[in-house]
Amino acid sequence: MAESGPSALRFAYKGSRLKPLRAFCQVARLGSVSRAAEALYLSQPAVTLQLQALERELGVRLLERSGRRLTPTREGELLYEMARPLVEGLDGLAASFREQVRGLDAGELNVAAGSSTILYLLPGIVDAFRQRHADVRLSLHNVTGASGLDLLRNDAVDLAVGSMLDVPADLSYAPVYRFEPMLIMPPDHPLADKRELKLEDLSPYGLILPPKRLTTYRLVDLVFQQNRVPYTVALEVGGWEVIKQYVAMGLGISIVTAICLTEADRQRLAARSLARWFPSRSYGIVMRKGKFLSAQARAFVELIKPEVLAAREYDQSGHSER
């Protein structure tokens, strides 16, 4: 049964509050009850009644006459600022909904990647994808380490792009790009022009490295330990751009992956390859084994490396992964 009593009447009244708010916004915008009535396809008395009802409910005067024009009072200006986005949002709901439905028809693509991958590797790929598939809603999820793998396992993302050293059994990793390890320093640093660079030459200089929890720090430590070369860490800081900036300021030297070195860095940094001691870093595509790839995901992978799809189809046809 329908609820009766004062509370039900208040609920019914509030349910139709949009009409007086729409009438008020039109009058505030157009400065005239008659013009607002025309815009709303209502009679002038109907608009006037709605304005009066709204003023009674709020207990303030919302409009005042200024010459031949109705203008909002101080309270009316405040209400107009609050109500206009609501009224316009509801009035445009149907069109917005249809637009979103078209987006659903085109599909969406969720890709997980680390900061360096998003910053240095993906811009060209994303640009090419957007030009070919403008209707697909593409979301890049900025993740680190295990959090990206969790998104993959929970199907919160379609695929991941990044670097992996140890690949879990439930995931597949297809390396696509390889980047050398590089020593970076200011251009006038003693090591910049040293003819034959040795690992021991780095010992006197403090290193600027990412935090210990990250793979780069652990790899640097492992190589120095294996070669029994002492080293010092001058500063721990996250992000290749920050590290490059601090190196350029002369606060230390660093060991980075060549992926982060751009043309602009040539003016402020000297770089020397450390491939003799440190392994190259691969970047590629990570997917959950057995996951069906949507058409938009396949298109994205195709832009990175077509061979990945061919290898995946070979594996899913019943052969074991290599």
Rank of each mutant, 00 (worst) to 15 (best):
R22I: 03
R10D: 13
P6F: 11
K19H: 08
Q26L: 08
C25V: 02
A8R: 15
R35G: 07
G15N: 09
R17C: 04
P6C: 04
A23Y: 03
R29N: 12
A2C: 07
S32N: 06
F11T: 15
E3Y: 09
Y41H: 09
F24Q: 04
A37G: 01
A39I: 07
F24A: 00
L21N: 02
R29C: 06
V27L: 06
A28E: 09
S16E: 11
S43G: 15
R29W: 08
K19D: 11
Q26E: 13
A36F: 10
A36G: 06
A23G: 02
A2W: 13
A39V: 07
S16K: 04
E3C: 13
S43M: 07
Y41V: 10
S43V: 07
A23K: 01
F11K: 15
G31E: 04
L30D: 07
R29V: 01
A37V: 01
E38G: 12
L40S: 01
L42D: 00
G5W: 04
R29M: 08
A2M: 12
S16H: 09
A23N: 03
F24E: 01
Y41P: 00
A39E: 05
A28K: 05
S7F: 10
A2D: 08
E3I: 15
L30T: 03
Y13D: 13
E38R: 15
K14A: 07
C25H: 07
E38Y: 07
P6N: 03
Y13A: 09
Y41K: 08
A23V: 00
L21E: 04
C25G: 06
A39W: 01
G15H: 11
L40E: 02
R29S: 14
L9P: 12
Q26P: 03
A8W: 11
F11L: 13
R29P: 07
A8V: 01
A39C: 02
L18S: 06
A39L: 04
Y41D: 08
L21Y: 08
L42S: 02
L9T: 15
S4W: 10
A37W: 02
Y41T: 06
K19F: 15
G31W: 07
C25Q: 08
S16G: 11
R10A: 14
R35T: 10
S4V: 11
A8S: 14
A23I: 00
V33W: 03
S16R: 03
S16P: 01
A36V: 03
R29E: 14
Y41M: 05
G31N: 06
R17P: 00
R22F: 00
G15L: 12
S32T: 06
F24C: 00
R10V: 15
P6I: 14
S4N: 10
K14G: 08
G31F: 08
L18T: 12
V33C: 10
R10K: 12
E3M: 14
L21H: 05
G5R: 05
R35S: 15
A28D: 08
A23F: 01
S32G: 06
R10S: 13
R29Q: 13
R22K: 08
K14V: 02
R22A: 05
R22V: 02
K14P: 00
A8Q: 14
L21C: 01
R35H: 12
Y41F: 11
A28T: 09
R35W: 09
